[in-house]
Design a protein around this nucleic acid. Sequence first.
DNA 1: GTATTATCTAAGTCT
DNA 2: TAGATAATAC
Length: 754
Amino acid sequence: MTNYLEQLNQSQLSAVKQVDGPLMVIAGPGSGKTRVLTYRIAHLIKSGTDAFNILALTFTNKAAKEMRNRIETIVESSEARNLWMGTFHGVFSRMLRIEAEKINYTSNFTIYDTTDSKSLIKSIIKEMGLDKDIYKVGLIQNRISGLKNNFITPKDYENSPELVQTDTIAKRTAFGNIYQKYNQRCFKSGAMDFDDLLLNTYHLLNEFPDILYKYQNKFQYILVDEYQDTNHVQYLIIKKLAALNENICVVGDDAQSIYSFRGANIQNILNFKVDYPDFKTFKLEQNYRSTSNIVNLANSLIIHNKKQIEKQVWTKNQEGEKTIVCKTLNDNEEGRIVANTIFELHHKENVHWKDYAVLYRTNAQSRALEESLRKKNIPYKIYGGLSFYARKEVKDMLAYFRMCINPKDEEALKRIINYPTRGLGATTLQKLIIASNNHDVSIWEVISNLEKYELKINKGTVEKLSQFTTLISSYMVQKDNLDAYTLAEQIVKTSGVFYDLYNDKTVEGVSRFENLQELLNGIKDFSEKEEEENNTLEYFMQDVALLTDADNEKEDDYNKVILMTIHAAKGLEFPYVFVVGLEENLFPSMMAMEGREGLEEERRLFYVAITRAEKRLFLSYALSRFKWGQYTDCKPSRFLEELNKIFTKQSEIALTQKKKNRNPYQIFAKTKTPKKKSNFIPKNLKRVSATNATVTPTKTEHLQVGLKVKHSRFGSGKILKIEGEDANKKAIIFFEAVGQKMLLLKFAKLEIEK
DNA sequence: GTATTATCTAAGTCT
DNA sequence: TAGATAATAC
């Protein structure tokens, strides 16, 4: 591909060829932004820049991967593998592993995901004896994250009367203390949370001039995608790295900024001209993605935002169909109409399943859609929500892996010390945590040297703990000799997790077992693909915490209807797009409507949703939606009013479908009552056992094998065997209703039946 | 210490 | 509605 530059339009070409100096590209949706970045990097390599000297920051791992492949085909070599390209978190965790010692970490540090962070905060709140209704884990975690992103350390916090006062008013006076403890505990565990990855990168560059210089020299060219969604820390990191060469190219679109909740700051775009006064700027305004009806519709929406950089997005594409706006009775009907429309288009116009995307504001909305698609046998894949790596069974297994790489990892230890159950419960764990806090060492250090820390733990427990440490240590010694798969397989089998999941034959149990196998398959692929020195479990684990569903795509996912939040759809495009749930308080979200800023961000989010569509767009809202356990009335979103009606059409589908849905089946299905029944039975039982409690317990000496007995809950049964002495006397009894049970006679209230 | 059951409570977007 | 926690039974 020698004439690669010929594939670009005039403004794209200018942006690609302007290689030196600061450059800002403002790119409307579908204007070939990714194309510019890709070709620009390819052009740099082709013109003799070493790929090792290029840093490219993308918004997702997937985007990085695709871009890398694309570059490889353009430059016709595997040179692209040497690029430092990935997300902020991915690229800088790599840098931090290399330079870890400088900031008193080791290169095997763990990355805590949000679940880990919350779990840690929860234990801190508990240890401090605080009221968990006042100190809500989610809120605390959010606040800590926010402070970190604004460079506010626990000390800064204590020194700031305004910040402290906010929490005093909310009666959370211990917040500063929690924040401080949280940081200490992360550090003690050799762990960084998502915010630390960025924060520590900044500290590394700020406090070690030699390291800063090293990377400034290394990264002669820096490119940043989705610049409008970078936060303050990210902005400062880039600014530092680019300060020497000033060969920095940022690409973004202020109209697509949708991550301010994560600290993203549109101001970064505006600051660009202040930081680099001799910057050049290009605007990409021609849209190649969508029909003119869609482009115009999007434009008619976004003009309602006051704050924006002036630009005119236009297209040469054909007019296309009008966008259909569909009113539905409720969320179920909305799902049904989406499914039916997909089904019809698939059969009438031969549209592939993968060409459809259903986008929504909140993950919870996927349920109704899922149900309707399943009823029609339409293959679909949900992205986001609970990601594969966030599933309990997967996290448990990963916790074993984490422990053998970094045994200080407290959250990993807490997950597995008693999974599968080995008699090390909450009480023991609490003692361990207290000891580790008192001596300022990790829990692993405590359980590895129990005698040193003089714990009040009985002998049996000491033995169990020692078995646990031996088990983990046996994995640790092997981690460098075995490839990831061999070690992982061994851990799965010898830890007892395999056995535990294999024996669970419930529907959920089987699915958990399958997920475990899927995880192992992934590790197997990794072991086989990577070169020998890089195929260890440690290497596999390095960025698992940073992976999302999109990075875990399987082959059979290829041709499926895609369901995702609008946030997750950023940067993607699909021929047929459904945006559902356009209702007040849902989209725009209730929480975002307090100020103009929030509302404008919601509007940009809708703008992003609309502009994902290439050929056709369907918008829908429901008059009633199942929320908070009951149906709530909904009003159509104000955003629908703002759209220019020239480009839309009210749906007739909705009206015809509504009639079809007047079928008794649906109504009956909704008025099911098993819930009440199941609530009723246990109450009844409780009453029975309560009356029985007044009966004096049977004297155990009268019980013998062969006797017929009656149990308050299990009914009539026959004693098969009696074992143990006095207080530990147990009986195996065969009950007519529930089968064989072993009961401790001390507790079981048995009556002898004649 | 563990497993089961009852009760409570919260419900946003992501690395 | 579902996930988390408290209460209960053994």
